[in-house]
Amino acid sequence: MRYLAIRLGLSAVLLVGVTIITFVLTNLVPGDPITAALGERAAGDPKIVAAYREAQGLDKPPVVQYFVYLGNLLHGDLGTSIGTRNPVVQDLAYAFPATAELAVFAILVAVVIGLTLALVAALRRNRLSDQLIRAVSVVGISVPTFWLAVAAYFLFFFVLHWTPGSGRLSAFYDAPPRVTGLFTVDALLAGQPDVAGDALAHLVLPGMVLAVYTLGLLVRFARSSILDVLNQDYVRAARAKGLPGRRVITAYLLRGALLPILTIVGLAFGSLLSGAVLTEQVFAWGGIGQYAYRASTALDLPSIMGVGLIVGAVYITVNFVIDVVYGFVDPRVRVG
């Protein structure tokens, strides 16, 4: 419990740190967000400019703005987006499930395929299949996500017709009634299997693109981690006493290699969220990434703050969960 409490406290401090850093950075950007939000004519009218400043709270000193923001934050109010004119909470509630659905799909793809490839590579060390998998891993880490997204969209949608086009659903489907915001889940809950299938199919290509970097990273580290464990005495002993191969892998090899793999998954989640900014632009996904891109190019400070906060919170939460899982997987961590 003490271990959990310490981790939780650290997470809360980190979250406050995120608000400070995001606020300072957004206020350091040269350019007035209000004049960016107004049209040419409106920006020339001092009355309209003053009304906008007052409505957005930008007529107060930055320090006051920060504490007002923090106070509102405690009441669940992240302000109103200059760009969409909606409460930022409402925008994020709409956009976050879209990105979450994509990120979870990507992480599942990366973990399942990545761990399998890492296992194959480690078990067939220095053979052709190992060399090939390592090469694929390096390519996965090196290829820029934006380029990969454009190329994959062109190849699989336009040339090969294997995947559907951009967006979360085909144009002739309406979004399913909103329960979780995850289209695949909501469609199933609404008894619309065709919509669920369409939503799942739309997930495949952007999900794969997003997974490539994490997959490459995971293969590299998991392979190395499995190789370390492979040479441990307890694994040799397990094999020597004739345990079945599957049991050696699941109970000895993977379990022993789990800690570094968990670390990579946690780190990769951050890169997934940043990769989503570019991937969502290409695939017109309508999630946090597309929202963040729009907000940052329009100097929409409340939205930028909101995105920073939610991404920071997700990152901290994921790492908190991993820290906790660490403690359970390896009790020595808790003691330390």
Binding site: I113, T116, F157, H161, P164, A201
Partner: peptide, 25 residues
């Protein structure tokens, strides 16, 4: 393990391929 990898990739492509065909742009 190789079979698992191949199955995962095939499932993804079949899934997306079926849907792409179904939507018909």
């Amino acid at each position: 393990a190789s079979a698992l990898t191949a199955s995962a990739a095939a499932l993804a492509l079949i899934l997306s391929g079926c849907s792409a065909g179904g939507s018909g742009g």
